[in-house]
Design a protein around this nucleic acid. Structure first.
Length: 432
RNA sequence: GACCUCGUAGCUCAGUUGGUUAGAGCGCAAGAUUGUGGCUCUUGAGGCCGCGGGUUCGACCCCCGUCGAGGUCCCCA
């Protein structure tokens, strides 16, 4: 090997300190929002048994597993999402886990797919999940958390103006009950959902033929497709019977959303399906209205039977995922990326090796006061050291040359201002 | 999985129908200023022209492949 490849693995990112500042800032807001709502942080390993993700419904996510065999011939996968791990952890605790619990995490997730704008092979995804809450109050709470995060990073969601982010919300029970009324249930319902998911990539005429193959005649197919075009509660109320549980759930959700002050951000939209087969109730996707990024920046849903599908008892669960890449794309396009300082407070500059011990003692003295202090051992030209300290955002430069030490002082220079400000401070007062 | 565009210095990019030694700005380094930044000037370092084949007397340039980055579909954590 002559030279290693300096590029990170395809679709993955390096985080240099300047990149890490943004990431830490974003994650900090995510943690703050989650904790403010009583959610506790947890995590699992990035490696999981691939079986955890392989579902017979043929989810897209299963085909994009970043999987491999380990040396023990285990079929493992880098996690594509955290939800199955959460279900596994909840099941493992069993009845020892006093429900409800509210948990959050910021896991790094992987998928093996072609890269595009806002879509790499690796990303971090803020997850918040409520376990053991059957009421759609949990959904409203989670959406309000997403809204709060959007607000904190600088997106405008005020009432009265056109919001920069909206929530497109549906409920799978609407379609489920509707189909049950036609005698379509169980496996056939799943097959119909798979067909419906193709909507947009094939014509409605072709889709009608596909539906015919799974036993849905043209007349019923037309009614199904019409249902997907429904927008808003009023229109939905005329499209389905009053006893449709999905309709009732969406009505209740809107009422609760109002109490969180986010009802003006929600658009009832029956075309929202979501690609994960385990969703059973509310499903939603979050879209930026401002800018040109048209991909969902976050999504969520209720999955009350995932634990059951994994072989345990059913537990009502609902949660969302919120990726770090789309939100960064949106903020960048809108010019809202924050200017984040490096966070260095002081630089101590010993001009020669004899001054190093003095510099170290002064640095320790300042650090004990809670300041971030770097000692510049470079012995480079003075102008270079000053410029570097300034570029690093330091507020003060502590200068220690032979003259200062002979006098028992340290020159303290204030950086950043227009005028030069310098004073001499006795070494004894600086712990040196 | 389909189609399209682009890979030249650390960064942003020039580079003539294929022709000698591949350039600029910014940045970096040294000096002017033997210990005081931001301005200015001088000088310097830094390149397998993404990688591998091919065509040609000769390839940064043309052809094929490959890797990577973007874009439009498709889809989606």
């Amino acid at each position: 090997m002559s030279q290693i490849d300096l590029e990170p693995v395809k679709g993955t990112r390096d985080f240099y300190p300047e990149d890490m500042r943004f990431r830490s800032w974003l994650f900090g807001h995510m943690r703050a929002v989650a904790r403010s709502m009583g959610y506790e942080e947890y995590d699992a390993c990035v490696l999981e048994h691939a079986d955890l993700y392989i579902r017979k419904a043929g989810d897209e996510i299963t085909r994009q597993l970043y999987d491999f065999k380990d040396k023990g011939d285990r079929h493992l996968s880098l996690r594509p999402e955290l939800t199955p791990s959460l279900a596994r952890m909840v099941m493992a605790k069993g009845s020892a886990l006093a429900l409800p619990v509210r948990w959050f995490a910021i896991p790094q997730c992987f998928r093996y797919e072609e890269t595009q704008r806002g879509r790499k092979r690796e990303h971090f995804q803020w997850n918040m999940d409520a376990v053991g809450i059957a009421s759609v109050a949990a959904e409203a709470e989670l959406m309000s958390a997403q809204a709060e995060l959007c607000r904190r990073v600088g997106l405008k969601l005020e009432k009265g103006a056109e919001p920069e982010v909206i929530w497109r919300v549906s409920n799978r029970q609407v379609l489920g009950h509707f189909l049950a009324g036609m005698g379509i249930e169980g496996d056939q319902f799943a097959q119909v959902c798979v067909c419906i998911d193709k909507r947009g990539k094939i014509t409605d005429a072709e889709l009608t033929i596909e539906l015919g193959k799974v036993g849905v005649d043209a007349e019923r197919a037309a009614r199904i497709l019409a249902l997907l075009d429904v927008r808003g509660l009023d229109q939905l109320a005329t499209a389905v019977p009053a006893d449709n549980p999905g309709l009732a759930a969406l009505r209740e959700l809107m009422e609760l959303a109002a109490s969180f002050g986010i009802d003006h951000l929600i658009r009832i939209d029956l075309s929202v399906i979501r690609g994960l087969s385990y969703y059973t109730g509310t499903v939603w996707e979050v879209f930026a209205q401002a800018g040109t990024f048209r991909r969902a920046i976050a999504g969520g849903g209720r999955y009350d039977r995932l634990c059951e599908q994994l072989g345990g008892a059913a537990v009502p669960m609902v949660g969302f995922g919120f990726g770090d890449i789309p939100i960064a794309e949106v903020l960048a396009e809108l010019g809202r990326l924050p200017q984040l300082p490096r966070g260095l407070d002081d630089v101590v500059f010993p001009m020669g090796p004899k001054a190093f011990p003095y510099a170290n003692r002064i640095a320790a003295h300042l650090r004990a006061q809670g300041r971030s202090v770097a000692v510049d051992y470079s012995q480079r030209r003075f102008k270079h050291v000053v410029q570097r300290a300034e570029d690093d955002g330091a507020q003060r430069l502590f200068i220690l040359g032979g003259d200062e030490i002979a006098k028992g002082v340290c020159k303290v220079r204030t950086l950043g201002g227009g005028e030069r400000q310098e004073s001499e401070v006795p070494l004894a007062g600086l712990g040196a």
